[in-house]
């Protein structure tokens, strides 16, 4: 089983093979993401009851929570891909890490923006410098810094290595963001779903949110594969197999 996985992994690391496989998978990820997100948007915006305190305003969690969660998930993905690229010198892993950054930055921005829009009526302020909001903002700066560092270097192999170190160092921020509401007093609420014991949210409200997370993951898969294909094309533009792909 393990051997089969390693063999599959090695085959995937070869750009022509990955390029072909990614082209086949992308529509599956994309269309399943659309279907799951549509179903869960209906579940969250229509079927779920209004909250006892926040009324209909709470429904922004169906965009806010999955994007905040994805902002961390994409970062961990990026850091792992960067580490694999650094340790095993796999170019495709660096291409994956580079492709993660703009997607992750977008999710982070979405989480901050939706939180801010919701914060004004509910908390009474657009922004506060509490531990959760500040650490999430630092995550956005990490993504932007990663992209800036890459674009500052001409040579791809040098950019790969330098940015990989930044991505790996930044991973310490991920547990800080996750536990910030537990470790410190914050204006942001504590964990609802991942806390010990029962999640303190009604099932009718919870399932569309969990489904949205799955939908966002599938969407991330579709976008990532598309971006990595572009990245591979740019990196391998002088190789023979690209010409064969282009001609066929």
């Amino acid at each position: 089983m393990w051997k089969a996985f390693v063999r599959w992994f090695h085959r995937m690391a070869s750009p022509p093979h990955f390029y072909a496989a990614a082209s086949r998978w992308t529509p599956w990820f994309f269309w399943s993401a659309i279907i799951v997100i549509a179903i869960c948007a209906y579940g969250g915006l229509v079927l779920a009851p209004a909250d006892y305190q926040q009324g209909d305003g709470f429904r922004i969690i169906y965009a806010h929570v999955p994007s905040a969660w994805m902002s961390l998930f994409v970062y961990v993905n990026m850091a792992i891909a960067a580490a694999i690229g650094l340790i095993w010198r796999i170019k495709l892993a660096h291409a994956v890490a580079a492709s993660c950054a703009p997607i992750g930055a977008s999710f982070t921005f979405l989480a901050l923006a939706t939180g801010s829009i919701w914060g004004k009526p509910m908390w009474g302020t657009w922004w506060v410098w509490d531990a959760r909001l500040t650490s999430e903002l630092i995550l956005l700066f990490l993504y932007i810094g990663y992209m800036a560092l890459r674009s500052a270097m001409e040579e791809p192999s040098r950019a790969d290595r330098a940015s990989a170190v930044l991505a790996i160092v930044g991973v310490v921020n991920v547990p800080i963001i996750h536990y910030s509401v537990v470790w410190w007093n914050t204006l942001h609420q504590g964990p609802t779903v991942s806390k010990i014991g029962e999640p303190s949210i009604t099932w009718a409200m919870l399932w569309p949110m969990l489904g949205m997370m799955v939908g966002f993951m599938l969407f991330f898969g579709a976008i990532l594969l598309t971006r990595v294909r572009g990245e591979v094309l740019a990196r391998e533009r002088n190789s023979k197999w690209i010409k064969e792909v282009a001609v066929s």
Binding site: A50, D51, Q53, Q54, I61, W123, I201, T202
Partner: peptide, 17 residues
């Protein structure tokens, strides 16, 4: 300045009652 801190509980009004 006074800010409201919402908690981690989400439920319909009937359940809260």
């Amino acid at each position: 300045e006074v800010l409201a801190k919402h908690d981690e509980n989400y439920m319909p009004p009937e359940v809260a009652e």
